[in-house]
Design a protein around this nucleic acid. Structure first.
Lengths: 252, 252
DNA sequence: GCACCCGTTGCGTTCTGTGCAACACTCATT
DNA sequence: AATGAGTGTTGCACAGAACGCAACGGGTGC
């Protein structure tokens, strides 16, 4: 919408890949060096970009401050965290917390597995929306037309033979998840990794977040993982209750 | 430097204070509503800003992703973290890790105290540069003219009667810190809180980060806290050594 | 039903961002 | 030393993009 800002903001994910010098930035943005310089300076003034001693640019520490403040306003996260830790202590596996935002589902918290074999994921990273248990949980509670609109807009990458193949299958899966109140991902994203998840609901009963437990086949089989379902659901419900307690009804 | 980008970026800290609607943003920026709308839309397109259900804007979860990626490139943090945890387990108090960037000193990691009485701080937050132990450690290793330039540019807020009063006192303090290789903050920021810290050095011997242990008077006296100094220094040195081991000399 | 408030749109003007070209600087190479 | 290629930086004229205005639309409350 605004060309200048658009270009400037495009620099951030670019630098997230690693430090870059002025020329590289200009090339990647397809603008003149002087333009890139001006944009970088402005970003620098706001602390979002830092110039390291070799003159190359990288993301600035101010991003931490902003992200951290943003996190403080995501109060679900604060409330959920101790529960996630408890769940991890009980089962030992990786625990994720995710929210739905702008047609993306993002992990906003994570407690690492105690086992040496870990799955790769990253807080803030968009999840594979067509297969992840948390994604299904969050989308399942949307209205029927919304679900349909999203389902049809998505791509359905075949991460594995078990990945959701198309919109039709996805909508059916969402209906199932909505019905049963929990979801799984059995090798749909990575062949050897299974997940089981449950929704955290707002005061209006719709899911505002979702948590999941993930473990590789080599540690526990899918059947064994499913025995954790009651625990996972109880944890989600505990968070839901606590969230309801602290939530003041909409002010205005 | 670039007006449009400057305005757009100014929205971020504004929203960090809490969600705001279009009118509020426009007022705070002192621009027309339509201008604010355009900027917000652009930020939104990049995921830095999220529009919640009541139409108000807040910071977007994409900021997490960026901050997280930025953190992965701050390799000091990765290396230091387990040491900080170990230090916390040994002494029980709050442990901070900070770096110096653009005339600010920022916390980039933190391990919470095990005691119920905690001090307030936040990762990403700029620290009180004139009094904090970590700030003194990081500035002490700059060249003499740099130190002088910074010292004279700073304000010297009197947080407490023990706060550093002026540039002269600060420069003297920096000299002491440089000499002895460790630093304290004894009630200089908050009356009842004491800190003791030590520097983490790069391969060139200059401090690239600093860690500190903080505890309130009610838990341990300043004298007791100082008995931790050898442990704090050993921890910092261990991180320094590990950092030196993993650091590949500048490529080009 | 009215008035009010808020977000949104289209448009003409003008200010701002743009790319160019020249400059300054460092670092290798000859 | 001198040359050249590679950086980052500056000033400037032009054009195009961002600006503010005014009018519209869709709520909400009186």
């Amino acid at each position: 919408m605004s060309q200048t800002v658009d270009r400037a903001l495009s620099i951030l994910p670019l630098l997230a890949e690693g430090p870059a010098d002025l020329g590289q930035v200009a090339t990647r943005l397809d603008v003149h060096k002087s333009t890139a310089l001006r944009l970088l300076r402005t970003l620098h003034d706001h602390g979002l970009v830092y110039r390291q001693s070799d003159q190359r640019y990288r993301l600035g520490a101010r991003l931490f401050a902003l992200a951290q403040e943003a996190a403080e306003h995501l109060d679900v996260r604060e409330i959920a965290h101790p529960h996630l830790v408890a769940l991890n202590e009980a089962c030992g596996h990786t625990v994720h917390l995710a929210i739905h935002e702008d047609n993306e589902v993002l992990y906003i918290d994570k407690v690492e597995s105690r086992y040496p074999v870990r799955m790769y994921s990253r807080i803030g990273k968009p999840v594979a929306i067509t297969v992840a248990a948390v994604a299904k949980l969050l989308l399942a509670d949307l209205s029927e037309p919304e679900r349909r609109a999203i389902a049809e807009r998505l791509d359905y990458p075949r991460y594995t033979p078990r990945s959701t193949p198309n919109a039709e299958a996805y909508l059916k899966e969402l209906a199932t998840v909505r019905e049963q109140g929990w979801a799984t991902d059995l090798g749909g994203h990575e062949e050897s990794i299974n997940c089981v998840g449950a929704p955290i609901r707002g005061t209006d009963g719709r899911s505002i977040a979702a948590l999941s437990v993930s473990a590789p086949n080599v540690v526990v089989t899918a059947e064994e993982l499913l025995t954790l379902l009651p625990l996972v659901r109880r944890t989600a419900e505990a968070i839901t209750r606590e969230y309801a307690g602290t939530t003041t009804p909409p002010a205005a």
